[in-house]
Design a protein around this nucleic acid. Structure first.
Lengths: 196, 196
DNA sequence: GCTAGACTATGACGAGCGTTATAGCCAGAG
DNA sequence: CTCTGGCTATAACGCTCGTCATAGTCTAGC
């Protein structure tokens, strides 16, 4: 349980999230992953005996939890502050990678499952999205938004930001994310109780 | 130019768009593509001598143009009608594929370019997004929306629908797309001139 | 009928894949 | 010092990949 004595394992997971966010899940090899994390190939199968599937699942969970943590903290200042932090987080990732990196959760979500079973990594992606939506919806409700509309607004936020990240990468421009940011801010501000 | 006598070529391109929308670009092999289009492997290199890159580019252009055509037609009835057609189009693809297929343009947009050059397929993806946005923005402006806000709204529509498609696949539920549809309809209706 | 050119069939090339197996290292417990 | 067990190193397995080359088939035009 306590892998605190093994930074190698966490380095592999974090590196996997990064590499998957760039290349996509199926296009990321375990050999690349090991090299990227400066870990030997054998170690990946030592730490993740179920192979690539387990590694991908943990990478998605890792990224999902990291974003949720930031979101939870910034939402203390209200939905608009949380939205801004959410946007700034992704903006930083796209800009600092020169449009090479995106969202690992989205990357996993857009690859076909084997038709007869649902891979755990895809389930983890769904849970990551759901977690972000619930944090946003809860904050919206808590600041005077129509409780019936809050989940829809939260879904719109997550969906539009995820889509905008991909559009930024294709266009090699931050314009889509900035446009979405502006529209969302107006929309959210208008949906909140003015007294808040 | 006139490949009307060769349905094989178009079948390959259409099949490529479908397969890429499911598996992702890097995870789709030319052998699978040929088999899916019932064409021999050699034919793909006959029709697309520049290989996978050319095939991917044409597949993205094909899908982008097909969506643009539908959008252009339905936007004649106004922005809300166009939005509904846009949503219904993707909804059909996701539902009929049992959450296996998505948007091929998004699939190409989320895979890392080789760092030193921009692959033509990625350029095609950017152009597809841009085309959809311009059609939507033009219709919004033409129906009384604030001309300065129209491009931002159009970007929000495309981004949120693309993101919602991916979320639907992960959750194996149409809820995200339906939530986004509802929020967008309210938003767009409110942004239009009431006299229209 | 015959010839040219578009298409198909087939197989090979080196490379990389996920995964497994086995042997070696090396710190810490006894 | 010895021994144990977590970690590493290395090689190999069968497979698929993108791409290319070559030979075969078929159809249109003369």
């Amino acid at each position: 349980m306590a892998e605190s004595s093994t930074p190698s394992r966490e380095r592999i997971v974090a590196g996997a999230a990064d590499l998957i966010s760039r290349r996509g899940l199926n296009a990321t090899s375990i050999r690349e992953l090991a090299k990227h994390a400066k870990a030997p190939l054998g170690s990946t199968y030592h730490y993740f005996p179920e192979g690539k599937q387990q590694l991908a699942t943990e990478a998605v969970q890792y990224a999902g939890a990291a974003v949720a943590r930031i979101l939870r903290k910034e939402l203390d200042e209200g939905p608009v502050a949380g939205l801004r932090a959410f946007l700034a987080l992704w903006r930083g990732i796209v800009v600092e990678s020169d449009f090479h990196a995106g969202c690992p959760v989205l990357a996993v979500a857009v690859e076909e499952p084997p038709a007869d079973e649902i891979p755990p990594a895809l389930v983890a992606a769904a849970e990551a999205f759901e977690g972000w939506e619930q944090l946003l919806a809860q904050s919206l409700r808590g600041h005077g938004a129509d409780p019936e509309r809050a989940p829809g607004l939260a879904a719109l936020i997550v969906a539009s930001v995820e889509g905008a990240i991909a559009m930024c990468r294709a266009k090699r421009s931050m314009q889509p994310l900035d446009q979405v940011a502006q529209q969302l801010e107006v929309l959210i501000a208008g949906a909140l109780d003015d007294s808040a």
